[in-house]
Amino acid sequence: MKVVITSSSQTLAEPIDMHFGRAKYFILADTETGHATAHDNAQNLHAAQGAGIQSAETVAKLGAEAVITGSVGPKAFRALQAAGVKIALVESACPGTEALRRFKDGELPVLDSPNSEGHWV
């Protein structure tokens, strides 16, 4: 299964970025092989608005079935749902490797409603 981990750097050793929409990098990881690639999300970092929506689009295009992050706003949530991408949450900015292990072990709660108001409407 392919999952995206939001990250402030390009490696899974570094902590997760807790904000989905304006995360600096998306790391696409394969839960079976452990293979991981980093994808720049800088364009969304600077988006005037709708960063979460565009991030959802990027995640869907990467072919991920789930995303692991800290918080997801209402619009990004709707977009991820429409794309059929599950959202798994970490409660603090742990290293990406730890988040991935806990996700595989089924320790991370799956979000069923948005848990952030978004930076602004």
């Binding site: 952030s116 108001e117 978004g118 930076h119 602004w120 409407v121």
Partner: peptide, 10 residues
């Protein structure tokens, strides 16, 4: 409006 919403969310 928009600036106030941005100032108070979260």
């Amino acid at each position: 409006g928009c600036p106030v919403i941005a100032a108070v969310t979260n």
